[in-house]
């Protein structure tokens, strides 16, 4: 079980990116974290495995307090947390197999890693996982020879090979076209079921979140403003997340913050359209 309590992050610039965020994740739940750009979604994900150091609060994974670990202990803890990145973050000049096997680096000695001599069961597992994500036969391709969707599958396979207790995904679909995005989300959902581990996904596209997640968490200005099922994510909730509506009511504040422009407008439709889509699809498809 992943348990986050009063987590906060203030950057060196004084910017408060994450403020008093608490929630628990367990079982094989697929949790989508949504919110406008700059709401602290990435900071939240990265604070969990401490790629970004949180400034206050705690993260506990099965009882271990990750925030207080020494570097060595942290490395051991990171082995149990799989991570999928926005821009795939594959080492492009290595083969697909090396990228996948790098998920085992925390378990094998540096010397074995250097010689690419991984234990037989790891290699077997890697072949099986590649087959599972639909990349059988691509083992010897270099990562930069693959398409975006294929690369993200390698990224997912790498995370799975860690045999993690939880998978974190930081905007896994933002560099992909809508079709591939859906496939990647499906894959992540299926992994949660098959491995019985929770998957925590940062995502821009509200419809995708509704469609695949069991639970949605909304962040605004670093604060948790929504936590519920996709059904509970109604217009009022969306307004609260995307307009940071305060009790006083800033009625004249029309300019909704637009999602970060990452890979073209068709991938990240303007917010109004996102919300329209969200309304028109009652409870996923």
């Amino acid at each position: 079980m992943l348990s986050i309590s009063t987590l906060g992050k203030t950057y060196g610039t004084g910017e408060r990116a994450l403020d008093d965020v608490s929630f628990d994740v367990e079982g094989s739940q697929v949790v989508a974290v949504i919110g406008p750009s700059g709401a602290g979604k990435s900071t939240l994900i990265r604070c969990i495995n401490r790629l970004t150091e949180p400034t206050d609060g705690e993260v506990r994974l099965d009882g271990t307090n990750l925030t207080s670990l020494s570097n060595r202990e942290l490395r051991a803890a990171r082995r149990e947390i799989g991570m999928v990145f926005q821009e795939y973050a594959l080492v492009e000049r290595l083969t697909v197999m090396e990228n996948v096997l790098s998920g085992r680096l925390g378990y094998v000695s540096t010397w074995r890693g250097f010689r690419r001599k991984f234990p037989q069961e790891d290699v077997q597992q890697a072949y099986a996982t590649l087959d599972r994500v639909g990349l059988r036969g691509h083992e010897d391709d270099r990562a930069d020879e693959l398409s975006g969707g294929q690369r993200q599958r390698v990224g997912i396979a790498r995370a799975v090979l860690q045999r993690p207790k939880i998978v974190l995904a930081d905007e896994p679909t933002s560099s992909l076209d809508p079709e591939t995005s859906r496939a990647v989300m499906e894959l992540l959902t299926e992994i949660a079921r098959e491995e019985s581990i929770p998957v925590l996904i940062n995502i821009h596209e509200v419809p995708l979140a509704r469609e695949h997640a069991d639970r949605i968490i909304g962040l605004t200005d670093g604060k948790l403003v929504f936590d519920g099922t996709p059904d509970e994510l109604d217009d009022r909730a969306l307004d609260r997340i995307y307009r940071s509506e305060e009790p006083g009511g800033n009625a004249d504040r029309q300019g909704t913050p637009e999602p970060e422009p990452t890979a073209g407008d068709d991938v990240n439709p303007p917010l109004e359209r996102v919300k329209a889509d969200a309304r028109s699809s009652p409870e996923g498809r």
Binding site: A77, R78, R79, E80, R104, G106, G113, G155, Q162
Partner: peptide, 8 residues
Amino acid sequence: EAVRATGG
């Protein structure tokens, strides 16, 4: 960073 995140 990704390699670091696997616990290497």
